[in-house]
Design a protein around this nucleic acid. Structure first.
Length: 310
DNA sequence: CTATAAACCTGCTGGC
DNA sequence: TGCCAGCAGGTTTATA
């Protein structure tokens, strides 16, 4: 699942690869992927746009385009971006290139979906950006949850509204974290997943950060001590930075621009490790459900009742 | 406000 | 081996 580190890693790769290139046009094979504006306008506006820069905000990838436009890509659960070299044929099973004809071609497309192949034929391709130099930027997404949007520059605030503090920015201090959590009821873990509080944490890195700080996921946020808040802030920053350094966490979803799996999987301490010994104390890790999400923690290191005696 | 749940989707797993 | 219910989780929307 792409969280902040996966998006940041992709942003860095894209920055190297496609800044300065031009989007000739786009094909959309799953119209609901385009969240704004409507499909015809999106297709018309995206044509012949130079790519000026790549940014990230939370889990949103932002591509600045010629003509004071910006495009956002949010991959949600299973979205991926791939860059195909020139000359590779895109074969999605569609006979025609008119993306607006999807309505009639849809069922056939589904039947003819193919595996991702070395020759560039693609499975689960939802959107294809044809670059003027012949390369193609593919957006694939088996579960179709991801969204791509296009906005005028002056709509940027609207496009990114509701996103909380950037955890890798200088303003993310333990005081800022305390302020954000101040007066909030309920357990800490659901609040860590709330993008309006901190932008970019998902289920994997939330569990990892809580483990780092030895905080039980069900601890009432209001009960955290200043020391714990500082440890939590440090844990969030550490696990995110490590995730980026390792090229992201791939269980089976995330791949980089060239289809390589991220290596951070080998560095995960608790996520989906229930039953395995805690890397700190050896106690078997446990899994509970918090706010509808699988939650992994060490029952010895992350206590609900008593703080460890020092 | 908070919180719980369903919806969006499809691939995968485990039980029978 | 084959079928099917259930699970996975980021976000939005609906309901208590």
């Amino acid at each position: 699942m792409p969280e902040l580190p996966e998006v940041e890693y992709t942003a860095r790769q894209l920055r190297e690869a496609i800044v300065g290139a031009t989007i000739a046009d786009a094909c959309v094979f799953w119209p609901r992927t385009i969240g704004h504006p409507d499909l015809p306008e999106f297709l018309a506006e995206i044509r012949e746009r130079a790519i000026l820069g790549i940014r990230r905000r939370g889990k949103q990838l932002i591509i600045d385009l010629d003509g004071d436009l910006l495009m956002t890509i949010h991959r949600r659960m299973t979205g991926n971006l791939y860059l195909l070299p020139p000359g590779w044929e895109l074969d999605t099973g569609l006979r025609e290139r008119d993306p607006l004809a999807w309505g009639t071609l849809g069922p056939r497309f589904h039947k003819q979906e193919q595996e991702v192949q070395e020759d560039g034929s693609t499975r689960y391709c939802r959107v294809c950006f044809n670059l003027a130099d012949g390369r193609r930027l593919l957006y694939t997404d088996p579960r179709k949850f991801g969204r791509i949007t296009l906005w005028a520059r002056e709509q940027e605030a609207e496009a990114l509204q509701g996103l909380g503090i950037e955890p890798l920015s200088e303003e993310f201090t333990s005081e800022a974290l305390a302020r954000k959590l101040q007066g909030r009821k309920g357990a800490i873990k659901p609040l860590l997943l709330d993008q309006q509080i901190i932008a970019g944490l998902g289920n994997i890195y939330a569990d990892e950060a809580l483990f780092y700080a030895s905080i039980h996921p069900l601890r009432p946020a209001a009960s955290l001590t200043p020391l714990e808040l500082d440890l939590l802030r440090e844990g969030i920053v550490r696990v995110l930075q490590l995730g980026i350094e390792h090229g992201g966490t791939s269980f089976n979803e995330f791949h980089d621009l060239w289809g390589e799996a991220g290596e951070n999987y080998n560095h995960v301490r608790v996520y989906q490790q229930d039953g395995n010994p805690c890397p700190r104390c050896g106690t078997p890790l446990e899994r509970i459900v918090v706010a509808q999400r699988g939650t992994h923690y060490c029952p010895h290191c992350q206590r609900l009742d008593q703080l460890e005696q020092l």
